[in-house]
């Protein structure tokens, strides 16, 4: 097969699998059908089975990745829409964001000291708790690489969704709003989706905390990177 054909096929498969998984998950809400699990698994299998060279896979799918920039700007709209919540809970949000950034960086930093791993993985690990567009943007400042970071961010989202309920029960978290903030701060998009299941206000707090944590990570990156 020609390279161009493989590249086109890769693009079609990426979008196709994504739409399919989205549709399937809407009908049957099981964990392994959720797009964030099913699509990467299916695509990795697809690329391996057809022996598609990675440069060919990325030739056109890279256009999708470029959309992360405009998507970052799009976060302005929920911030504007939820300005009432910001006005009502400025302290909760600020403390949630600050704790989220510090805990995200500190937990990763501590753990890679305990569990030795190759430097590139350890450094890509640092920004894994913030939403992908922000994490991929800043990871190089910490010595990480964007693609490995994207994978770790996705893993963090999945893990956060799976462990949040027992974790909150164990830690005796009383207010559901704290659960929302923690999900947004520690587990970004997936956590925010989960928070929306808990309740409307929790979802709003989660999405605001997620966005502000991402922004804080980007703006603070030069400082944080000089510390680690």
């Amino acid at each position: 097969m020609s390279d161009t054909l493989l590249a086109c096929l890769s693009f079609a498969a990426t979008v196709g699998f994504y739409l399919l998984a989205k549709l399937a998950y809407r009908h049957k809400k099981v964990f392994w059908l959720s797009p964030m699990v099913a699509v990467p698994v299916a695509l990795v299998a697809f690329v391996m089975l057809l022996h598609i060279p990675l440069p060919d896979y990325f030739r056109y799918t890279n256009l999708l990745v470029l959309m992360l920039g405009p998507a970052t700007i799009a976060f302005a709209v929920p911030i504007y829409q939820q300005r009432e919540t910001i006005r009502r809970f400025p302290l909760t949000l600020m403390v949630g964001v600050a704790t989220g950034v510090v805990m995200g960086l500190l937990s990763s930093w501590l753990l890679v000291q305990i569990f030795p791993m190759p430097d590139v993985a350890a450094r890509s690990m640092l920004t894994r708790s913030v939403s992908t567009p922000f994490a991929m943007q800043v990871t190089e400042q910490f010595g990480g690489v964007p693609d490995l970071t994207a994978m770790l961010v996705l893993m963090t989202g999945v893990v956060g969704m799976l462990i949040c309920e027992p974790a909150f029960r164990l830690a005796r978290i009383r207010t559901s709003l704290a659960k929302g903030a923690a999900l947004g701060a520690a587990s970004h998009g997936a956590g925010t989706a989960k928070a929306h299941e808990i309740g409307r206000e929790e979802g709003v707090i989660a999405s605001l905390t997620m966005i502000f944590t991402g922004i804080a990570m980007v703006i603070g990156a030069p400082l944080f990177a000089s510390l680690v």
Binding site: T99, T156, A182
Partner: peptide, 24 residues
């Protein structure tokens, strides 16, 4: 790597939740 992600996410989740719980 998986162990780090799981433990790190647990720490960040619980840490943030505990602090925000009090502040909220």
């Amino acid at each position: 790597i998986v162990a780090c992600v799981v433990l790190g996410t647990l720490m960040a989740l619980v840490g943030t939740a505990l602090v925000v719980d009090r502040i909220y």
